[in-house]
Nucleic acid binder design. Structure first.
Lengths: 207, 207
DNA sequence: TGCAGAAATGCAACGGGTGCAAATACGCAC
DNA sequence: GTGCGTATTTGCACCCGTTGCATTTCTGCA
């Protein structure tokens, strides 16, 4: 029932405008750079008033992170569909592995742009880190709920933080080495190498 | 030769003004809140022009992170003075442990304020995370240099990221549970618990 | 003491972001 | 299809952080 009731004209129009904003922004950011692009320009290109922009996105940075919760939901899914003998670490491992393979997320034009701007623009990097931290927290909560007897909230958060931190750290180095390539294949490969390198200590213990 | 030559009047005056800015800001932030305090106010209280503020700090957030590299330097020190048979993990472990014990950093009024604002104000949290990431990167670099045959750059970054991520994750939960206390003793205790909880997986393997 | 260079300052401007009130468009009942 | 109540859009004025520029003031040093 994806196209169920309740999806009104208003809703569709709103979604379309939102999409238009993201695309307009992506184009302008690529052409002129992030700092050089003004919200007024983006709004104009999407044919809405400047003021209205802020009823779609709370800030300029947020344009680069629409649907910021898909990763969290993916992990929820990994937790829900876990193998009976999977421990917390196995779940996180599988989930993070999947991030590397999920081409939808990394191959897209917007994803490449986002990655470049995260490396380049401090404001964007800051926002990205915050979103990551929130996601981490939420995943930890779910993990603790799924393993009530072996994980308290604090341990769950520590574990999640360790995994995410490891991947982030490795990725940081790999991307800075890779120079300014936006080639999706290169980026995807870097992510996979990073995940494997980051998670190898955990792999060693269990295999 | 700490008070060596070259320390001119200008330098001392500049340091004094910088300090005055930090203190003025701390007071105002405590009294009125972060967002409600304007740079003009801070500058006025420190008796400089608003414009001049930006020749001391690049942004409002940076007021809360003067000497942001002492932690990095502490880790350098831990690396330099390592025991002959210490591995990379032991070094990071010792360094992070020390953070919890170093009362200079956590007991101070400014440190408590900083911690509260990190939890409260998104802009501050963003800046803090960026500084942390930079520090992490730098530590990883040093670690890789210290263990050339057992650690490549990527592994070093992953390891560092895992440790820091674990502590950060644990601390996040502990501080949000602790409510809005600014009691330094409580905070310090939370940090120690967080570090121990976060690092216990690594401790188990080695002891 | 005087001069070159550094720092401080004032001013104007720009962009992100918000509160407010008027105008507009949509959903829905009739 | 009409009309009304409500959600959305919009323009406007405003605040604040931040920067460039030109001017003035101050310090280091010969």
């Amino acid at each position: 029932m994806p196209y169920a009731a309740g999806v009104t004209l208003r809703d569709r129009k709103r979604a379309r405008t939102r999409q238009a904003l993201v695309e307009a922004a992506a184009g302008l950011f690529e052409r002129q750079g992030y700092d050089e692009t003004t919200i007024a320009q983006i709004s104009a290109e999407a044919e809405i008033g400047t003021r209205t922009f802020f009823s779609y996105f709370a800030s300029k940075e947020d344009l680069l992170f629409p649907e910021s919760d898909i990763r969290v939901h993916a992990t929820f899914h990994a937790i829900a569909n876990r193998q009976p003998d999977d421990g917390p670490a196995e779940i996180l491992l599988r989930a993070l592995r999947q991030v590397g393979e999920d081409s939808d997320d990394l191959a897209g034009r917007l994803a490449a742009l986002r990655l470049r701007l995260i490396r380049t623009v401090p404001a964007v990097r800051g926002r990205a880190l915050q979103i990551q931290l929130d996601a981490q927290r939420e995943i930890a909560r779910q993990l603790a709920a799924a393993f009530p007897e072996s994980l308290d909230e604090v341990s769950a958060a520590a574990l999640t933080g360790a995994f995410v931190g490891a991947v982030t750290g490795a990725l940081q180095v790999l991307l800075e080495d890779a120079g300014n390539t936006d080639d999706p294949a290169v980026v995807r490969h870097a992510v996979q190498v990073a995940v494997d390198a980051a998670l190898s200590p955990w792999l060693r213990d269990r295999s």
